[in-house]
Amino acid sequence: MTLARAIDVTRRYGSVVALDHVSLDVHTGELVGLLGPNGAGKSTLVNLLTGVRRPSAGRVELCGGDPRDPGTRKVLGVTPQETGLPSALRVGEVVDFVRAHFPDPLGRDELLDRFGLGDLVRRQTGGLSGGQKRRVAVALAFVGRPRIVFLDEPTTGLDVAARHALWDGVRQFHAEGGTVVLTSHYLEEVEALARRVVVVGNGRVLADDSVASVRGLVAIRRVSLTSAVPVPDLPGVVGTERDGDRTHLLTADADRLVRDLVSCDVPFHDLEVRPTSLEEAFLTLTAA
């Protein structure tokens, strides 16, 4: 069954086209990563699918209904931005407030325990650390026993242990049959959780495939070396990063680049050639 669907959707803000004829189907039980730089259109797409905004053209559906209709949103869970929690309210009160909107919500303590937040129940949200706020925000998406959740950058700013605890919570929801749409620029997160990746750039879907395929789509290698002198401009290099005297070069043809480095007499050591991370794949895709 298709839980969330965008059919040839266009969204304009004045003369700016944020989404340009985008179609997307999210099926029951999927865990989809929605990737794109700021301004790519992923927030707009999420706002359309969660009923905050309406498309300029085309149609969006949530469980076969219009997400602008409040009744349709009973199956929906969304994370607020962590900066948006009402700072004077206690964590337990915020949970109770959200619970009041759903017909069959999770119990307050059950929810807080599931996300390891039980000891924060009496704390005002304004006094929480950034990581704690983030965990509360993610937990709120699950209050109404949703069939589909939209998680916006769920673990940005969390330490490693908290991030893994949160990922476990998301995986548990998914294992029980829940559907997840995850937006992130944080690519390790998408690689860790999602099976399917949708890359959005300039208002269009640039790629929609498995994590491995999206990475394979752009067979870019990362060539890293340490050199006391600046590396000259070489053909085939699509990106350069410097980190002290360490230089990272992105190229489609690593063999040729290494030969060129040798033939140009660049004095280098600690040469390293690696496949790209999803992040680099994604930069290449959105730059195209």
Binding site: N47, T50, G51, V52, P70, G71, T72, R73, K74, L76, V78, T79, P80, Q81, T83, G84, L85, P86, V98, H101, F102, G144
Partner: peptide, 10 residues
Amino acid sequence: PWDPYARTLP
């Protein structure tokens, strides 16, 4: 940002 979030509640 809480306001747009509250708009996603049913």
